[in-house]
Amino acid sequence: MGNDDVTPNAETAARDTATVAHLELSQRRFPEGQRRIFLAAIDAFSERGFHATTTRDIAARAGLSPAGLYVHFGSKEEVLYRISLSSMRLTQQVATAAAAAPGTAAEHLTAVVRDLTVWHAEHAASVKVVLHHLTDLTPEHRAEVIDIQIAIHRLLRDLVAHGVTDGDFDVPDTHATTLALMSLCVDTARWYSPDYRRSPDQIGADYAAMALRLVAAKSA
């Protein structure tokens, strides 16, 4: 995948700042130095790619000396790992919260697809860093991130399967349908930009309606 995926701008920076703020609230508050490094690394990896980015680049964007970065992280791979793990955990939280609300199988599926789509559009820059640079993680770190990806996929697959069992969905291949649904949500991050003609909420609503058609929901 290319390294010219994202052109940083004020709106992208604001969205990534919101991601880090969400992380602080949902897990633990990051020290200011780590927060600045996260944002700087997302910017640098998006603009230059992982291999072309140096720890000096990240430190400079964060307003730190190279030594200041090593106070928080041992390497740029560790920075990428922490970004990837935090982003994936937040994605899992979004999916889990949407699936936990009361409702029918169709309502659960609609909520999960809608919220995951909105999440991936609103945080496209940071999500693309994770998607495009997963193979740059160490095998151990990559396995940890992939485990969360699998858990999210399993959550959506279980929603589809329950709908089939309850007679609400008509799906001949649960696994293939789940893959298609996940692709709808995740791939939004690959092409979405803030100047796109439709908002993340509108895209989320469109994809939620499409999801019901994919599973042949009786209520659709």
Rank of each mutant, 00 (worst) to 15 (best):
H141F: 10
P200F: 11
Y192R: 06
D170C: 09
H22N: 10
T178K: 01
D57P: 15
E77I: 02
M1F: 12
A180C: 11
A121H: 04
L23M: 12
T91H: 14
R15D: 07
T12Q: 10
D5A: 11
A98V: 05
A220C: 05
H123R: 15
D5F: 08
G204A: 13
A41Y: 01
I83G: 12
H22W: 15
D16T: 02
V118Y: 07
A60V: 10
G204D: 10
E140P: 07
T104E: 02
H51C: 07
P31A: 05
R157D: 08
T135H: 13
S86L: 11
G49T: 00
Y207H: 15
R213P: 00
H120D: 08
L109M: 04
L131K: 12
I58T: 04
K218G: 09
L137S: 04
G33F: 00
I58N: 08
M88S: 09
T19M: 15
V20M: 05
S199G: 12
T178G: 09
A59V: 06
R82P: 09
F45H: 01
T138A: 03
L214D: 07
M210S: 14
L184S: 09
P139I: 03
H120V: 04
D147S: 14
P8L: 03
P66D: 06
I152G: 05
P102C: 00
S75H: 01
R89E: 09
P172M: 10
G63L: 06
A97K: 01
L69W: 03
D43M: 02
A220Y: 10
W119H: 15
T54D: 06
A95C: 04
D173M: 03
R29D: 00
L80E: 04
V129L: 03
T96V: 12
H120C: 13
D4P: 00
L212A: 10
S75E: 04
E47Y: 02
H141I: 02
R82F: 12
N3E: 14
P194Q: 06
D147H: 13
V71D: 06
T174E: 08
V113S: 10
R114I: 06
T55N: 15
L137P: 05
V164Y: 00
A97S: 11
P31V: 00
A111C: 13
D4R: 13
Q27S: 00
R82A: 13
K218D: 12
D57Y: 12
D173C: 12
A121R: 08
R15F: 02
D187E: 06
G167Y: 01
A67Y: 07
E107P: 07
G163I: 03
D170Y: 01
S126G: 00
A216H: 15
L212W: 11
G68W: 01
D136Q: 07
V94R: 02
E144Y: 03
W119L: 14
V71I: 14
T17K: 07
S199P: 14
A205G: 04
S26Q: 02
T117G: 03
V186L: 11
E32K: 08
H120Q: 06
D201W: 11
G63F: 10
A124L: 08
V113Q: 04
A10N: 10
P172V: 05
D4M: 12
P8M: 07
V6E: 05
R29I: 01
I83N: 12
W191E: 03
A98E: 12
V112R: 05
F73E: 04
S126A: 12
T55I: 14
A180G: 13
V164D: 06
